[in-house]
Nucleic acid binder design. Sequence first.
DNA 1: CCATATTTCCCTGTTAAGTGGGGAATATGT
DNA 2: ACATATTCCCCACTTAACAGGGAAATATGG
Lengths: 79, 79
Amino acid sequence: MKNQLANIILFHRKRSGLTQLELAELAGVGKNMIYELENGKQSVRLDNLINVLRVLNINITFQSPLRESFLKEYPDADC
Amino acid sequence: MKNQLANIILFHRKRSGLTQLELAELAGVGKNMIYELENGKQSVRLDNLINVLRVLNINITFQSPLRESFLKEYPDADC
DNA sequence: CCATATTTCCCTGTTAAGTGGGGAATATGT
DNA sequence: ACATATTCCCCACTTAACAGGGAAATATGG
């Protein structure tokens, strides 16, 4: 149970029937990156992570109390 | 409108009344990182981004159809 | 309008992220 | 039990993320 992200990636990759190598190639990253991601490495590059998550159909979102109340007041803001 | 993340960070930093330099020091990153984040740089390190978001009280979450249906079936899984 | 704060965008050196190769360890399935 | 697939984890090399200095451009506010 290294961290949340590692488990999410492992779970989705297994469900997709992909090997680490196949996922790496689909995401355009090195094979070691998948291994490191699944083992809790935090110092990966964001764009690489996003490419991996895209293959696995995982969405990354950002939430905060401030943002949610702001978007409720100004629904078209999108910022 | 470079990207979503850049706008979120800028919006929250302004609301916090912090300068780029102050946010950088609180997050333990270089001053240039804040500038680059707010200008849409995608190749930043995830741990640095997380440190910045923590200061701004912004949460990262991961969502997928697979994950949501899975957690609905097995509420205690947490993976 | 002026002084000051802040942001933008150069630059340079350092450091570690990322890569592919490769081989040992482990898992898978027949 | 065996062959094969996959994962784990080491290595060395390349490259760019990062920090921090600095200076011009821009924003702020008194």
